[in-house]
Simulated scan of single mutants.
Amino acid sequence: MTPTTILTIAGSDSGAGAGIQADLKVFAALGAYGTSVLTAITAQNTGGVDAVLPLPPRTVREQLDSVLGDFAVRAVKTGMLGTPAVADVIAEAAEAGRLPRLVVDPVLVSTSGHRLGVVEAVRRLLPYAEVATPNRAEAAALTGRPVTTVEETVAAAEALAAAGPAHVVVTGGDADAAGESVDVLVGGGATTLLRAPRVPTRHNHGTGCSFSAAIAVRLAAGDPVPVAVATAKEYVTRALAGARDWELGAGPGPLDHFGWSA
């Protein structure tokens, strides 16, 4: 059987815990064939981001045309866009209907605090998203309001949904919720709180990338958004737990994408 093809549009991670590398791992782990469009090259490891080199918009467009001209892409996810000009290239493709089942992971700040994206660039793309997946810090940057509690997370998700995406899920894995990881899903006239036990681990680098990549795979398989989001959350929770005792790098390390520790 021919595997389903998914496209990731994002930056690289030389430590392979996040970005393009993490997305391709998730696609493979969940049985999909991954293609990629690189937006930037980063020098990073578990300690942080040392350098970022955004690629020219023309190079991004050429990659996009090559992939979409040959593969029957069933879903697309975006991560780090790097510059407004690159965001314009992606938004133009989305507006033309070339990016089906679009999942926008608005990568603005890495776990080490480095600003990787541009807020306005992400806002340019949000109206075309079937699902947008900001974490609390990204939601705060996009809405200009504090997002530190579950109640504020709900308000931020509702505000972002009003900006155009069909669905918004604000992840709150580090929110104060009595040992729980609480994500807020808004869309289709409903607000849903997705709860899971918090996994105590330093290996959480690339959690957002992995979550959005898993959503894209499930959307391509035909799942409705609430089911895709819930399934992706279960996958990421398992991947966090699997890497809990790993010793990869000195800082926040990668997830167990393939269930090696199961």
Rank of each mutant, 00 (worst) to 15 (best):
V103S: 10
V73N: 02
A93Y: 00
P100G: 11
T78F: 14
P106C: 08
A85C: 13
V67P: 12
Q44G: 02
K77V: 05
L99A: 10
A96D: 15
V60E: 08
G79Q: 06
L108H: 06
A96G: 10
T78C: 15
A72I: 00
A85F: 02
L64E: 01
V49S: 13
L108G: 05
A75K: 04
P84G: 14
E62V: 07
V52F: 12
A72H: 07
D105A: 11
V67L: 15
V86I: 15
V103F: 03
S66V: 06
V67T: 10
T78S: 15
G48L: 10
L64Q: 06
G69C: 05
A91Y: 03
I90G: 00
A91M: 05
A85D: 13
L64K: 00
D65Q: 11
D105C: 08
P106H: 06
A87G: 11
T83C: 09
L53C: 14
L55Q: 01
P54W: 05
A93L: 08
A96F: 09
M80V: 08
A87C: 15
V104R: 07
V73Y: 01
E62I: 00
G69R: 12
P56Y: 01
L64N: 02
I90A: 05
P56R: 11
G97Y: 04
N45T: 10
A85Y: 02
Q44F: 04
A91I: 02
R58P: 05
T59Q: 07
K77S: 04
V104A: 15
V49N: 14
D50P: 01
K77L: 07
V73G: 03
A75P: 07
V86P: 00
A87L: 03
R101Y: 01
G97W: 01
A85L: 11
Q63K: 11
D65Y: 03
R98F: 03
T46V: 09
S66P: 05
V103E: 08
G47N: 13
M80I: 10
